Simulated scan of single mutants.
Amino acid sequence: MIISRAVLAAGLVALSVNTARAEDAPACASFAWSVARERAAFGAPGLPALASGSALSGGVSAVQLALKPAAEIVLPVPSEKEAKPDTFAGFVTATVPAAGTYQVTLSNEAWIDVSQDGRSTLKPAAHSGKSGCPEVRKSVRFALDVGTVTIEITRASSPLIKLDLLRAE
């Protein structure tokens, strides 16, 4: 009797874990493109932490970015969206090694602006966002040239956000 209760309890735990995974899979799978790489990176232990204004190191694409209150930060390029009260903002720079389509993916809701000339923001080539995916909220694609890119995050509801810059598959 004790063994059968233990087996039943283990089965119920396994069922609840599988049910939870099945429930979050539809939201994560319904992005316009796969965000599996980002989900894995955002969930990995030891995700590098960066302060706003830092540069992504070569070979590092996923980071946890520390943002500042929007009222306290001056972005290098004016954002396309006006700051909202009680939100957070920040930016990072990165080097694009080859021209192509890249995606900036965030763990939480926020606005993304990207600039390569230091004066204006680029129009996105495509965007996808879904609530209900625990690791990823938004992914936006941009056509980028070789060189430095500035990624600005505004309208974030918390002072920490996970960000990934990857070449689109």
Rank of each mutant, 00 (worst) to 15 (best):
A66W: 11
T19K: 06
Q64F: 00
V149G: 10
V104C: 10
T87G: 12
D24M: 11
P85V: 00
S30I: 09
L65G: 00
V149F: 07
K81Y: 06
V17W: 08
S120W: 00
A99N: 02
V140T: 13
A32E: 08
E80Y: 03
G100M: 09
L12C: 07
A110S: 15
E23W: 12
P97S: 14
L67S: 05
A36C: 00
S54P: 07
R137S: 09
S4A: 07
L47F: 02
L106F: 01
D113T: 01
R37H: 12
R21C: 11
V17L: 11
L12K: 05
E82F: 01
L160E: 14
S157C: 04
L106P: 08
A9H: 01
K138G: 00
V96P: 04
T87A: 07
F42L: 00
A94M: 13
T150M: 09
L160M: 13
V140Y: 08
F31P: 11
E152G: 09
I2N: 13
E152A: 07
E135L: 08
Q116N: 07
A44Q: 13
A94R: 04
Y102H: 02
A25E: 15
V140S: 01
T105V: 08
A9K: 03
F31S: 06
A66M: 10
V74E: 15
L166S: 12
F31K: 11
S115L: 08
E109D: 14
K68M: 12
A49P: 13
